[in-house]
Each structure stands twice: as structure tokens, then as C-alpha cells.
Design a binder for these strands. Structure first.
Length: 424
DNA sequence: TCTGGGGTCCTAGGACCC
DNA sequence: TCTGGGGTCCTAGGACCC
């Protein structure tokens, strides 16, 4: 066969089948071929189902209390979720996958994109990957191959759904793409959610093929650049490259619903302190400090009672990863928004304004917008020395020009009153 | 009685600056 | 002090994903 030079990428999306359920099956082999579901936190709703459970008609996300009797009747095995276990198994799988290519993006707990550009006999290679993961870890995976991420997602869907593909589907061939995209509902494309699908349907775009062949500008007007990228990816043009390095989180969220309604501030505070502790651990793990702590407090939207949703943001003078400091800030925020008389359902904390811990305070607060210069720093240091620590919260500007510096200092991002600075 | 939790990216609009 | 245009930054909110 002739070798055809091509700059086309070959990406493979490896996706674990019913991941959480498959993990539970590892320790309960007798559940092979039996219906299994895994529930969310507090056993709230179904978050993972095996094919057998799907066949029984159990939908994703259904509240558990609605199917409790049904589940008993059909002898469905039910598990509470065990995220520590799933995380551990996931890490092992990724390790196995990275032996097949160094170019791997771990996309989620149960998915990874692999760059297989240049490999020959993809079908066989895919089978090998599949066998290896099954043999070493015990988890079944499906593999979709295509020139772009969006197409690889489509391919994976087919590998997973249709029997007779051996869990692998190659969508690199343009003719195959043509016939396959026709059968894919626009709503089932990666990145097209419920709202966007509605908009597309309104202008008679129903299938993935319709979307691929649509006018880019029309789509951009409708769905912003996000939609336009999807169109291009469907055409085989790579717009979403592999992200090989794991980036630091830009925000860290930690919160959970209470099992029962809660009324008292102290009780909420205690829960919040726990979440802050967890969030702070994650923060330190990625070696970042946090500049702003946001607290959220909700009543139960499913309940027919007076609703209350609120949030408070606390800006810290100095970036920190200290659990105690963060808890103090969060408690302050909570006190600000807590009101008596509501049945609270959920509290949580969001750490935002994160930056690497090896930057100092000045850098933290100017991290995103303003670049620094020494003379400016010196001036600010002097002002702070005269007026007390942290009189000037933000620092730095891009030039030595005194006038420009003063203009910067006058702007609203500096907390000290201008007259006081003049007095120095 | 009981309805998950943790993320990202994009845009519009306001505030502020020169 | 007034004027307007253009640029940048910040935030809230929307949409989406697993």
C-alpha cells in the first residue's frame, strides 16, 4: 500500500465503560452481567449504570427514592459512591495508557485522549490497548479514533453503543464520517447541550452532518466561537489540541448538600469549616495560594418553601493556603449572608484568585493585569513603611515614569485613600 | 422523608483610565 | 472643570462537561 503523507492527526479517545460500576464489579465479580448502579453523594441519585441497568430503563440522574422499589424488584445491585477508590483505579489506568504513547491528555476520571499519529494498523493497536487495560486493571474500555477530539467523541459513542465493533471504532475515513454523522443527533455532539440543540433545531439543523455543513458565521452568531470550533472539528480540522500538561486549577470548589434541612448558623459553620479544610488541602497540593474566598449558601430548590440563595466574597490581604486563615475568612463570609428563618440545604466554599505559592503578595494581587518594576515597588514599600503594613494593598505598574505611577495608584484597585498617599 | 459535586470557557455590561 | 472616544479590567451569568 502507498504511504500517503498527511498532516492529519490521529486521536484516540479511551473511555471506561460504566466506570464507577465497573470499579465496584472488580470487588464483586459475581455482578458481572448483572444490573448495577452507583449513587451520588448522600445516595441522592444515580450517577453510573451498567448496560444491564440501562436496559431495565433506569435513567441517568434519577433520584434514588423514585426507583427504590423498582430496583429491589429487579435485583439491581446498588452502591454508594466511593471516590477514593475510583480515583485510585483511574490513576492506574492512565499509567497503563501512557505506555502506549507519551502524548496523552487525561481528560476526566474515566477518559483520556491519546495521540496515535503515525501508528499503523490502528484497529489492532486499539485492541491491544483494550486488552491490556482489561488484563492489568480489569476495567473494560471503548476506543474511538478520529482526526479531532469532537470526531473522536463521536467514534467512541459508536464503539460503545453498536455491537460488532469490538469496542473500537475508527472514524478517520471521510466517507465513513459522512455516513456516520448523518445518524448522530446534534444534541449528542460533545459541546452541544440542551440549549444549543434547541437553537440549532430552530434553524433546521438536526444532525451532526447538518452542523458540519452549516455556515460557520451563522453558527458563530448563534453559539459563539465555541460553536464555530465544533463545526471545524466536525470537518476534521483540529481546533482543540491535546493538553498534555495538567494545568493548575483556576478555582477550587467544595460544598455538599446537607442530608436534612439545617437552620442554625453554628451547624452550617461547622460543615463549612470541613469543606474549607478539604479545599485548602487541594490548594496546597497544587502549590497555590488563594486571594479570594467565596461562600455560597442555599435553601432546597426542590422544596416548596421560601427560597434563599446568596454568596459572599472575602478578599484576603495576603494570598494564603493556611487552613485556619481560610476558615476564618469563610466564617466571616457566612455570617454576612446567613439569615435566620430559612431551611438551609447546602453550603460551600469556592477558592478563587489563585496563583502559584512562590509568588509574593505584590505579585499575587497584580498577577493578572499589572506588570511590576523595581522603582515602583520601592515607592510602595516606602508608603507602606510610613503608613503601616498593607496600607497599600496592590502594587506595581509597568513604567518608571512617576506621573504614570501616581495615576495608577489613584485608580480604584488601590485601597488607600489618595489624600493619605499625598500626605506621605 | 429522600433530587450530586467539581470544573471550564465565553460574553455583555459597568467602571475606570487616558 | 468639561468633553468624547477608545481601551482595559472586572464581574455576573449562561452554557456546557464528566
Amino acid at each position: 500500500m502507498l504511504f500517503t503523507p498527511s498532516n492529519k492527526k490521529v486521536l484516540a479517545l479511551v473511555d471506561c465503560n460504566s466506570f464507577y460500576c465497573s470499579c465496584e464489579r472488580l470487588f464483586a465479580p459475581h455482578l458481572e452481567k448483572k444490573p448495577v448502579v452507583v449513587l451520588s453523594n448522600n445516595d441522592g441519585c444515580v450517577v453510573s449504570r451498567t448496560d444491564e441497568a440501562k436496559a431495565l430503563g433506569i435513567p441517568m440522574g434519577i433520584p434514588y427514592f423514585k426507583i427504590r422499589d423498582f430496583v429491589k424488584k429487579h435485583q439491581v445491585a446498588v452502591f454508594s459512591s466511593n471516590y477514593a477508590l475510583y480515583g485510585d483505579i483511574s490513576a492506574r489506568i492512565m499509567k497503563v495508557l501512557s505506555q502506549f504513547t507519551p502524548e496523552i491528555e487525561v481528560y476526566s476520571i474515566d477518559e483520556a485522549f491519546l495521540d496515535l499519529t503515525g501508528f499503523s494498523n490502528l484497529q489492532e493497536y486499539g485492541l491491544k490497548i483494550r486488552e491490556m487495560v482489561k488484563k492489568l486493571i480489569g476495567i473494560p474500555v471503548s476506543i474511538g479514533m478520529a482526526p479531532t477530539k469532537v470526531l473522536a467523541k463521536v467514534a467512541n459513542r459508536i464503539a460503545k453503543k453498536k455491537n460488532g465493533h469490538g469496542g473500537i471504532f475508527d472514524l478517520n475515513d471521510p466517507q465513513t464520517q459522512d455516513s456516520v454523522l448523518e445518524t448522530i443527533d446534534v444534541q449528542d455532539i460533545w459541546g452541544i447541550g440542551y440549549k444549543s440543540a434547541e437553537k440549532l433545531n430552530r434553524i433546521k439543523i438536526k444532525t451532526a452532518k447538518d452542523l458540519r455543513d452549516a455556515n460557520e458565521h451563522t453558527i458563530q452568531k448563534l453559539l459563539t466561537v465555541v460553536g464555530r470550533r465544533i463545526v471545524r472539528e466536525l470537518r476534521g480540522e483540529l481546533c482543540l489540541p491535546l493538553e498534555l500538561l495538567r494545568k493548575d486549577r483556576k478555582q477550587i470548589v467544595c460544598g455538599r448538600g446537607f442530608g436534612k434541612p439545617v437552620f442554625e448558623l453554628e451547624e452550617i459553620k461547622e460543615a463549612l469549616a470541613n469543606y474549607v479544610t478539604l479545599a485548602a488541602e487541594r490548594l496546597r497540593k497544587q502549590k497555590s495560594v488563594c486571594g479570594t474566598v467565596q461562600v455560597i449558601l442555599h435553601t432546597n430548590p426542590f422544596k416548596n418553601t421560601t427560597q434563599y440563595f446568596n454568596q459572599a466574597s472575602i478578599t484576603l490581604l495576603t494570598g494564603t493556603s493556611s487552613t485556619n486563615t481560610l476558615i476564618r475568612a469563610a466564617s466571616m463570609g457566612l455570617e454576612r449572608i446567613y439569615q435566620q428563618g430559612f431551611e438551609y440545604k447546602k453550603v460551600g466554599v469556592i477558592l478563587i484568585n489563585l496563583c502559584p505559592a512562590n509568588r509574593n503578595q505584590m505579585d499575587l494581587l497584580s498577577y493578572r493585569s499589572i506588570s511590576s518594576s523595581d522603582s515602583c515597588m520601592e515607592a510602595i514599600d516606602k508608603i507602606n513603611a510610613r503608613m503601616g503594613r498593607n496600607a497599600l494593598k496592590f502594587g506595581a505598574c509597568g513604567t518608571n515614569d512617576d506621573w504614570k505611577m501616581l495615576a495608577k495608584l489613584k485608580s480604584r484597585c488601590y485601597t488607600t485613600k489618595w489624600n493619605e498617599i499625598l500626605a506621605v
